[in-house]
Nucleic acid binder design. Structure first.
Lengths: 258, 258
DNA sequence: TCCTCGGTAATGTACGTACATTTAATCTAA
DNA sequence: TTAGATTAAATGTACGTACATTACCGAGGA
């Protein structure tokens, strides 16, 4: 609970101390059932309701908490804040939008160790990883080569899944309850090697996006992914302004095979 | 001024009515000199200071207003809302961060007409455009080829500017008062042509980003830009989460010449 | 069984007060 | 003239109160 008293002299305002304490408790899952009301918190921490409201203000604004009149306030489930995430989402949404059939050819699905990838996931070099390698097709033509590594102790239930038509993230969530909530990616422009060109079925004059992605769930590194996307069939489209920042857009991002 | 009294019975809370009135006055430019303090507003509209604070809260959060302790609050000039914008900003910030000298070789700076570009800017095909073509260097090595078209009636004052060391946007703002506030860009992965490779000084196995950008100011299309960036020296790095959305990051995005 | 009517609990709104902290301008004295 | 002290003005923090509004649930009646 809120053992140590809030300090009223310290450099930090009461409401921010309270906010931080609450964040800790939220992340610990203490409030997964029900979040206490403003009055209850004011009582527990011996501060005024206004101070509690100030503490909750940002948490509500950023979606961590959901509170409505008359209702029991609650901690937002990760699912409720889920949004389209990342350049790859943008890619597959574009395929969807273009009305193209979307399926994959699974080239590898096994358990293996890879020291380089393990390190990226903050794991021991010998840790077994589930490895999935697919060629992704839009319509009948190859669009991307996609390779994913997940910790095997988490992802083993995926070993017998059929990834020709199902999405990795959907299957991961269905079978393990885990969902990506954060990630970083690095996008490069490259010239595919001959082997890659063969897989993608494209000529020498076609560039490609090389996208590396580190996905995390609840602060834990869950996924390393590398995707090579044909540059002649896909463009990243973005929109930005001072107010809204940078936002990926899906419209018109996909081209037919030339 | 705030003639009509706020209605205390209506469906809308006092603070929202106040917020809307203030927005109207802000947009009319009434507060361009100085924005009144909370107490002054409370007095003028006969509401409590808390109500005024609630009304101002969102305006401050979204950057419309700037208020700090002790200071005269003010309406944010368009410039102050300016944020790092777009993949190109990300590129040049990365150069800056790497401590590399940044300059350009100006290959063209003239007035010309281009029907294709004019159409993108929603202009007549024969409308004269200012055209600037530069090779941008980081350190001593070419990093990108940058071509910009601006409507000549706006950008003519830039004709005698020296773009070896000054930025287009800075110069545009200084000489015309116009500043980009919104834009769309499309990013492709391509293989540079032989001519482009010569300009960029890179080999056959190097890919490139092809970035097209349409920049607007106050809803008017101001700029069409095309930039070709060496893929071996630059990567787009992004971070995303359900909370924050998609955000470009500059750290570590730039590599030295291999 | 269903439905209405309260009661309860939660947030929303709005008022009030007091004092702390920061900044900028002004005044004063060396 | 300049450095320092004072003052005014602004927001920040924190407390208090009261009542309105909404959602849920349970009890009692038709």
């Amino acid at each position: 609970m809120g053992e140590a008293e809030l300090v009223r002299t310290g450099g930090q305002p009461l409401w921010r101390q309270l906010q931080q304490r609450l964040l800790v408790r939220i992340r610990a899952g203490e409030f997964d059932g029900a979040f206490p009301g403003e009055l209850a918190l004011a009582d527990e921490y011996s501060v005024s309701r206004q101070t509690v409201r100030q503490a909750l203000r940002e948490l509500r604004a950023d979606g961590t908490l959901i509170a409505e009149r008359g209702r029991q306030p609650r901690v937002a489930a990760a699912a409720e804040i889920q949004q389209p995430l990342g350049a790859l989402y943008s890619l597959f949404a574009a395929v969807e939008e273009a009305g193209l059939d979307q399926h994959s050819v699974v080239r590898r699905l096994d358990i293996r160790a890879d020291a380089v990838v393990a390190e990226r996931l903050s794991l021991e070099g010998s840790t077994p990883l589930l490895y999935l390698e697919r060629v992704r097709l839009a319509g009948n033509d190859p669009l991307a080569v996609d390779r994913v590594w997940l910790p095997a102790d988490l992802a083993r239930p995926l070993l017998d899944a059929d990834f020709q038509h199902t999405s990795l993230y959907g299957e991961l969530h269905r079978r393990t309850g885990v969902r990506l909530d954060h990630g970083e990616e690095q996008i490069r422009a490259v010239v595919p090697t001959r082997a890659e060109r063969a897989l993608l079925g494209c000529g020498e004059t076609v560039g490609a996006f090389s996208i590396g992605r580190l996905g995390t769930s609840a602060g834990k590194r869950i996924e390393w992914r590398h995707t090579l996307v044909r540059g002649d069939r896909f463009a990243l489209t973005a929109e930005f302004s001072g107010r809204t920042g940078y936002r990926l857009v899906t419209t018109g991002a996909l081209a037919g095979t030339r």
